[in-house]
Design a protein around this nucleic acid. Structure first.
Lengths: 252, 252
DNA sequence: TGCTGTGAACATGTTCACAGCT
DNA sequence: AGCTGTGAACATGTTCACAGCA
């Protein structure tokens, strides 16, 4: 998914699996909480529980970063916090712009989790002239016209798109043209970007739909269990044919 | 993640891979757009492009649902829309509650993508008495005290948590106790739930951190390419110790 | 003794390439 | 001829189980 690029050929492996990268922030959060409670060391078992994964996975994940633990003891909390932060690139400052300051954009601007992790909201951008100058989360909203200038002056390489679906691709194109190489997209659209640009998508309704799928399956299992005995081999219809039950057409 | 549970032991397979389930909403969205433009059929190639995946994957995904295409022709748009909707459980109505009506909760309440997919926001719930009665997205906010009653009266099985991190687990417990079996969690916490309850997590800052990782890697590769020669085998620093920069503090 | 670190077995997911139907 | 549907090869991710170090 839009992510990988050329492998690191020379030097050492440095190939941290994508699945591991996705869990590092989780570990980091758990470790930060321990750090605040001044806990000096944790075992893989304890930390795994706090992060909601199993300990074998956690140890394997950490093994990709290096040998940061001590056998018979566990991991030094502060040291691990530092190593993971560095690995994730959080020891540097990442200026971020948020484009589209509606409900969601405002929520993102106010979200504390960004600032505390090295992300700095450098600017808020919206297409509505009425918004211009209005402060959101203490930051004045700027107009889309100045997008390129803003990106350039702040050295922004990460952009967040929280516009309506229709505006997302044009905004994306402008961000990329202005030099942004990583995009977090909240608009319900597939963005197309040139090679070398990473896109991650967060889609609220997709998550709900996945839940609905499992929810439905639970209900089905109950019914099945009640009915006793062998379930009726799944709606037979399946043989194909635009017949079957039910006409067609979606809600909308 | 948090999703799977006991495998279906008996009966027939009906095992749609999790990865496929996660893509069905994507296909559905692309198909709905085609449907609106009254396009009667699509090839796997076209649909795959619209959904941002490759065509082999799409065909494999559909093959788990059944043989819904026509060789030499493609897929009937309306028919597929219906089949996927049914598979995802979207042909039925899913009442949903949103707990925590801050910026994010309000954004969710206003989000059009829910209503258009069979999800109905049955209630908005917040702990702040000052919010009670205030309408958000046309729906009056109710107080947390009535949570159980609301769940019960509306037959809610899906809950969305958009509270601050600290409130998430208690809210989750109450939702589960009241009968909710699927939870979409926006709070930056690991929720623990009993068996049989599904949790999906959407974490804004985690996504940014993953982007930062790749962004950093890009920068590193450039530098390396410029500098030529072997990279300086990992910052030696930090022989352990509570030095480091390391910010700290949890989101909120 | 008690933990980490990791090879090896297993499970899941993706891609290829082509047989088979329309 | 043109497309779907799918076995088989491959790639990635997870879990097991234990060797090896503190």
């Amino acid at each position: 998914m839009a992510t990988g690029r050329t492998h690191r050929p020379a030097t050492r492996s440095r190939g941290i699996p994508e699945a591991t990268v996705a869990r590092l922030p989780l570990y980091l959060r758990a470790l930060t909480a321990l750090s605040e409670r001044s806990v000096p060391t944790v075992s893989s078992e304890e930390l795994a529980a706090a992060a909601g994964v199993n300990s074998a996975k956690l140890r394997k994940d950490f093994s990709y970063l290096g040998s940061y633990g001590t056998r018979g003891v566990g991991y030094d909390v502060e040291y691990l916090v530092y190593q993971i932060s560095r690995e994730l690139g959080l020891t540097q400052d990442w200026p971020v712009v948020i484009v589209g300051i509606g409900n969601l954009g405002a929520a993102l601007a106010n979200y504390g989790g960004f600032a505390s992790r090295g992300f700095r909201v450098a600017a808020l951008i919206d297409a509505d002239p009425a918004m211009a100058g209005k402060p959101v989360a203490g930051i004045p909203v700027q107009h889309t016209d100045d997008l390129e200038k803003i990106i350039d002056e702040n050295g922004v390489s990460i952009g967040v798109i929280a516009t309506p679906a229709g505006a997302a691709q044009p905004v994306c194109d402008r961000l990329v043209a202005a030099g942004v190489t990583s995009i977090l997209n909240f608009a319900p659209t597939v963005l197309s970007v040139p090679d070398g640009v990473d896109v991650r998508k967060v889609d609220l309704s997709i998550e709900l739909q996945i839940l609905a799928f499992h929810e439905q399956r639970k209900a089905g299992e109950e019914a099945e269990a009640q009915a006793g005995a062998t379930a009726p081999a799944e709606r037979e219809n399946n043989g194909k044919g635009p017949d079957g039950d039910v006409p067609a057409v979606m809600p909308a």
